[in-house]
Amino acid sequence: MIRLDNVTKVYEGGTVAANDVSLDIQKGEFVFLVGASGSGKSTLIRLMLRDEPVTRGKIWVAGKDITTLPKWKIPYLRRSVGTVFQDYKLLPNKTVRENVAFALEVLGRPQSVIGPQVDQVLELVSLADKAARYPRQLSGGEQQRVSVARSFVNRPPILLCDEPTGNLDPKTSVGIMKLLDRINRTGTTIVMATHDHAIVDAMRRRVVALEGGRVVRDDETGGYEAVRAAPAAVFVGGETEEE
């Protein structure tokens, strides 16, 4: 589903954010990108989204080489890749429903399609009863669930998450992870950058560890640290417990 071949990204000023990274992510996988701040996690997410051009190497997303993708085709790539960020990126002047519907409206979907799809995804994130509220009237966890709903409403095959639990307390983070796990079980490939030890250790999914822009570890079912023993997978298959 996603393949990186010897990808290097050097920012202006000479900072090397990704150094000869090669990865192969299969359809339906849940992959954690872990590492300290500055290790290159967010850069990899942005490269996969073609938010930044690579300096060297190739990236294939859903079978297409996105490093040579013409600019006008980038929006089409992004329609097949949902994104969730730490700061939610919600529009404060739109309600929950309008924020989620916005993702379909900009794609030109008719209202007859938008209405049912938005209802369905709001049910999935357990926010159907708060559809008329504005982001400022929601907790951080609820705002992040709106963000997940918006990224998934178009049913993209890939979800890229950059520190989605970074602003949330541990209990709320559990709720978001359960939601992402449910989405992953529908066959959606999820790549999540995080430095949350507890989540990574609990989920027992594939872990790609980065250090100074290099892949230093790629475990099929690993923990945050290579030698750290992982507790039981409490999130898998669970229901959302948050609020």
Binding site: K71, W72, P75, R78, S80, L91, F102, V106, S151, N154
Partner: peptide, 13 residues
């Protein structure tokens, strides 16, 4: 913010 989100969700230029 809206422009940024529009780009994120794949709105054409």
């Amino acid at each position: 913010d809206e422009v940024s989100i529009m780009k994120l969700v794949g709105a054409s230029n």
